[in-house]
């Protein structure tokens, strides 16, 4: 008689345990999807869109033609979203670096880096073609 009762208690225990596990799984699953606001991690797309917009009126080519590296750095600092580190390198059509100073707002150390290559044509009467490499990372 006692042995039968012990068996019944074990079965009830097992059902209770399963119930607790399922409910905790269900609650934790719903908690992880709620209010999960994620900033865009598609940095390459953001960078390309920014360069395209800056190039739409020839500004990008004008900065490069004039060697206005600080102007280009300040413009990118304003155009790119907050919390994004960038490093831009400008090459001529033979892939020789032509920017004489760093066009960056921080060090890209250890973060996941997105890299974009963009071909820019100067609107000067003298045809010039530049390759712009923009590397981006999110500040950690």
């Amino acid at each position: 008689m006692r042995k039968q009762r012990r068996g019944q208690i074990r079965i009830i225990e097992a059902f209770l345990a399963v119930l607790i596990i399922f409910s905790s799984l269900a609650i934790s699953a719903s908690l992880t999807t709620e209010h999960k606001t994620v900033e865009s991690s598609d940095l390459a797309s953001v960078g390309l869109q920014t360069l395209t917009k800056l190039d739409s009126d020839g500004s990008l080519g004008a900065y490069i033609d004039n060697g206005d590296w600080s102007g280009l750095r300040e413009t990118l600092s304003l155009l790119l979203p907050e919390g994004v580190i960038f490093n831009l390198t400008v090459y001529d059509d033979e892939m020789r670096q032509i920017n004489t100073e760093a066009i960056a707002n921080g060090e890209l150390n250890g973060q996941e880096v997105a890299s974009i290559k963009y071909v820019c044509v100067s609107q000067n009467p003298n045809f010039k073609c530049y390759v712009v490499q923009l590397r981006l990372a999110v500040v950690k």
Partner: peptide, 12 residues
């Protein structure tokens, strides 16, 4: 809402 994603653009 579940996951909410933010997309940033420079517009004219």
């Amino acid at each position: 809402l579940a996951d909410v994603y933010a997309y940033t653009f420079t517009v004219a």
